[in-house]
């Protein structure tokens, strides 16, 4: 038997993450190296070029005692144990493997332990952020792919262009865009997005008014900050979408 330890630092509270992972339905979608499912079994498969291939089908059991979670993978050729324990702002995962080719399989298992904590952390963290932010905050909604997805599926792409925009000139450009193109008046809402060399923006206009601003410069995000639009410039790839019935999206 082989055992290794992995320590992963987390954004969310470790006990919340461990709670999340104790539900097998949460574990299954985020389990790397999954290549099959049948009833209560999951297939994991590790391969490296043509030299190494390991496959087994596992039944997973989750046992939680106090703060400690044990995920037990019972396979036909091997058994894997992941033991999760909270340590301050981190989770320590002990991985035990009992089966063939331990020296290679072990490497993949450490990667799985890392990925499970990382993905669960992300899920717990975004659930918390969702609960804090109100849905009427359009600027922060623009940061969410799920919200933008809904918006765009009910929108029409009317313009796509590449344009060099001088520093500070973005709002002038957008104003001229809106007044130039008669077609824009047909839509009660407009979504304008742009990508520059080091920046990204998503804007939402409702009845001609700028109601949502989301800007990323480098790795910093800005919400509802009109001033920061002056910093966005250079070569921009711009898309403009007309929103046919904004009320449908705003309610959700």
């Amino acid at each position: 038997m082989r055992a290794t330890n992995v320590l992963v630092f987390t954004k969310s509270a470790p006990d919340r993450i461990i709670d999340y992972l104790s539900n097998i339905d949460n574990v299954l979608p985020i389990l790397p190296y999954t290549t099959g499912r049948s009833r209560d079994r999951v297939r994991l498969e590790f391969r490296r070029f043509k030299v190494f291939r390991f496959v087994d089908n596992y039944e997973i059991e989750s046992i939680k005692r106090d703060q400690t979670l044990l995920l037990l993978f019972k396979g036909s050729r091997s058994n894997i144990k992941f033991i999760f324990r909270p340590i301050e702002s981190a989770i320590k995962v002990t991985v035990e493997y009992d089966g063939p080719r331990g020296w290679v399989v072990g490497r993949y298992l450490s990667e799985i332990a890392n990925a499970l904590v990382y993905e669960a952390d992300k899920a717990v963290y975004s659930a918390k952020v969702r609960a804090v932010k109100t849905t009427t905050d359009l600027s922060s909604n623009l940061a969410k792919i799920s919200w933008v997805s809904k918006l765009l599926m009910k929108s029409i792409m009317i313009k796509n262009e590449n344009r060099v925009i001088s520093k500070g000139g973005l709002l002038d450009y957008i104003e001229s865009l809106i007044s130039e193109e008669k077609v824009f008046n047909k839509y009660p809402g407009l979504y304008i997005s742009g990508d520059g060399i080091n920046s990204k923006m998503r804007l939402l206009f409702l009845n001609g008014e700028l109601k949502g601003i989301y800007v990323v410069i480098g790795d910093k995000e800005y919400f509802g900050n009109e001033e920061v639009l002056r910093e966005v410039g250079g070569l921009m790839r711009i898309r403009v979408y007309g929103i046919i019935r904004p009320e449908l999206i705003l309610q959700s």
Binding site: V148, M153, S155
Partner: peptide
Amino acid sequence: GSLNLLLDMFPE
């Protein structure tokens, strides 16, 4: 199905 989304999120 998601053409509009793809055009926005993969701008090139």
